[in-house]
Structures are given as structure tokens and as C-alpha cells.
């Protein structure tokens, strides 16, 4: 037998769910890797997940952000969203992400931890274009 280590079933089911949604979303595993993002997210990011595969938070950060209003990079650890997840709680943050063509998108992101028997498996992070003042 020469199979790769299996992803936790809860992550597999979460990926299947995200694949079926029109809401942009990505999946983070328990090691903090971006394990998957869906087609709706790919439209914003400028490339399909199949083109880049899983990536670390650092790799993601260098390409896609998060960035502040002035374009400065924001460490993931400083996001409310991340702080919530570290505590096993949902979290919500507004920030800018950058697509592969250099376009910036102000988004609202909400994260939900995936907790199963044995602990936290990762998180689902959904995002939308941020509502702007009229």
C-alpha cells in the first residue's frame, strides 16, 4: 500500500461543501495551510485552486494579502478572524486581498472552526465584497 496520508473526513466533507457553493470560500487545515479554495474564490483571486494547489499562510500572504487600507501587509495573527480561530471560535474581519493581476478587493471574511471528535480539524473561511458607504 502506498497511499498518501488521508485528510480528516471533516475536511473532505467541508471541501465537498465549499466546491458546491457560489459563495467565495477557502479551507484551512489544522496546520494553517490553505488546503483548498472554491471556484467563486478563484474568480476573485485570479487563478483556480488546481493551478496552484495547497499553500502555506506565508505563500498566500505574499501573493494575496491580507492588506490594510494603505496597502500594508497585515500579519494573519493580528486579524480578529485568526484570533477567534485560535481560540476555537468563529471570527470576522475586513481587509483587502489582492488578485493575481494586482487588483485589490476589500472584503469581509467570516471564519468558522471545524471541530470534531479529537479536536479542531481546521476552518472554513467565507468572504464577500465589503459593503461600502453610499
Amino acid at each position: 500500500m502506498n497511499a498518501p496520508p488521508q485528510r480528516a473526513l471533516e475536511l473532505i466533507l467541508a471541501r465537498n461543501l465549499l466546491s458546491s457553493l457560489s459563495t467565495a470560500a477557502f479551507l484551512v487545515d489544522d496546520a494553517g495551510m490553505i488546503a483548498f479554495y472554491n471556484e467563486a474564490a478563484a474568480e476573485v483571486l485570479g487563478r483556480r485552486f488546481e493551478e496552484c494547489g495547497p499553500m502555506s499562510a506565508d505563500e498566500w500572504g505574499q501573493t494575496h494579502g491580507p492588506f490594510g487600507e494603505g496597502g500594508e501587509a497585515i500579519p494573519f495573527a493580528e486579524l480578529e478572524l485568526t484570533r477567534g480561530l485560535v481560540r476555537g471560535r468563529p471570527g470576522h474581519s475586513n481587509f483587502t486581498i489582492r488578485s493575481l493581476d494586482g487588483g485589490d478587493h476589500l472584503i469581509e471574511a467570516s471564519a468558522m472552526p471545524i471541530v470534531a471528535t479529537g479536536g479542531q480539524r481546521g476552518a472554513m473561511v467565507f468572504f464577500w465584497p465589503a459593503e461600502t458607504a453610499p
Partner: peptide, 15 residues
């Protein structure tokens, strides 16, 4: 799908 994302793959591989 990549094998690691298929439910049951590792368990059944080359059985």
C-alpha cells in the same frame, strides 16, 4: 480529486 481528498482512499488503497 487528489487521493488524499477521497473519503476511504487510504484505507482501500491496493486492497
Amino acid at each position: 480529486l487528489e487521493p488524499e481528498w477521497i473519503s476511504g482512499f487510504e484505507l482501500a488503497c491496493d486492497a
